[in-house]
């Protein structure tokens, strides 16, 4: 396969997956009880104008899709209707225009709320993941290099334990401890009601709020990345080309740096990509515990407030983010591994 063909096929696949998620997201909410749009029309928290607006924007008087007036309860409908005139295509069109509905709780457009929150989630995941990846890899390299020594067993034990911790529980414990003994804030992104003298002060406050959630993140994912790095590096170190490198007179540091790490990174990238789902699950839990105003927290709040448009929007955004991140990881992989998407001459 040619390199560009490879890239195009990956892009097309990601687009298809996003399409699948959109369809899933629509029908899930139409089939299961609790249709956000229809429930919304009756939700007492919305103003009368908002209800009318919803009815029109979502075409709620129209059939769900051709042949079905409604899916729950199941009501057959006209099959000859113009497909563009059904709820599904109106929904899809709305999405294209960035129209995700109106939050029952805040009465604001969902997309506005989620937009702010996406960045907060990225900030939290970014801080936690970078720390976890760097530390996890370092620990994994150390353990693999010293395989089957006490250093290795110690690192292994720690990682298995960290892997077994429920994220939210670790968050609770750290929160309990950090707020009681270290005087760290109990949640949120900023201390409410403070006027910052300068942006440095504001940053310092943000950093204080970030410490515990990102520490939780780091610990939970550190173990996993360490385990993966260790096992893939142990495999690489058993390869013949490592023996070649050693026969060439390279020392351990040079062998690890120049011959082992790049090869060991390949499975690492794959696993990080496959684990993006867990990353998101971690975000939901950590943001719930620390009241961090991100997408994961939005899901938690939406569930507890039965704010369906918010739930639907947050899920869609999370899923699409994971798909895109996954795509990036695959492109990174093809960049790291020269064998991907090149012609083999032998």
């Amino acid at each position: 396969m040619h390199r560009s063909t490879y890239l195009v096929s990956k892009l097309a696949w990601a687009a298809f997956t996003i399409l699948f998620v959109i369809v899933l997201n629509f029908f899930l909410f139409r089939i299961l009880p609790g249709d956000p749009a229809r429930a919304g029309v009756r939700d007492p928290r919305l103003t009368a104008e908002a209800q009318t607006a919803i009815r029109e924007r979502f075409g709620l008087d129209k059939p769900v899709i051709n042949c079905f007036a409604s899916l729950n309860p199941l009501e057959p409908g006209d099959c000859a209707v113009n497909p563009l005139d059904t709820q599904f295509f109106i929904y899809a069109g709305n999405l294209l225009r960035g129209e995700f509905g109106i939050s029952y709780h805040t009465n604001r457009p969902v997309v506005e709320v989620l937009g702010e929150r996406l960045w907060n989630t990225l900030l939290l995941i970014g801080a936690g993941q970078i720390l976890a990846i760097v530390l996890g890899m370092a620990l994994g390299i150390l353990a693999a290099w010293k395989a089957h020594t006490p250093v290795d067993y110690g690192a292994l034990g720690f990682s298995l334990l960290a892997w077994s911790l429920p994220t939210f529980w670790l968050g609770i414990i750290l929160l309990f401890w950090g707020s009681a003994y270290l005087g760290l804030p109990v949640g949120g992104k900023y201390t409410p009601g403070i006027d910052y003298a300068n942006s440095w002060e504001q940053f310092a406050d943000l950093a204080r709020h970030l410490i515990l959630p990102s520490l939780t993140y780091t610990i939970v994912f550190l173990g996993e990345y360490m385990l993966i790095m260790r096992s893939s590096l142990v495999d690489v170190l058993a390869e013949d080309y490592i023996l070649t490198a050693k026969a060439k007179g390279l020392n351990h540091f040079q062998i690890l740096k120049d011959h082992a790490l790049k090869n060991a990174m390949l499975p690492m990238v794959t696993i990080i990509a496959l684990n993006l789902g867990f990353t998101v699950a971690g975000a939901v839990q950590i943001e719930s515990v620390f009241s961090w105003p991100g997408l994961g927290g939005a899901i938690y709040e939406a569930v507890n407030r039965r704010d369906y448009p918010m739930l639907q929007g947050a899920f869609l955004l999370l899923a699409v983010s994971v798909i895109i991140a996954n795509l990036i990881a695959e492109l990174l992989y093809s960049y790291l591994d020269p064998r991907v998407g090149r012609v083999n001459q032998s």
């Binding site: 013949d240 080309y241 023996l243 490198a245 026969a247 120049d258």
Partner: peptide, 13 residues
């Protein structure tokens, strides 16, 4: 020169 040069060269360099 190793037995089985298939794997004696690093595949990513």
């Amino acid at each position: 020169i190793f037995q089985g040069a298939m794997n004696a060269l690093n595949p990513v360099r």
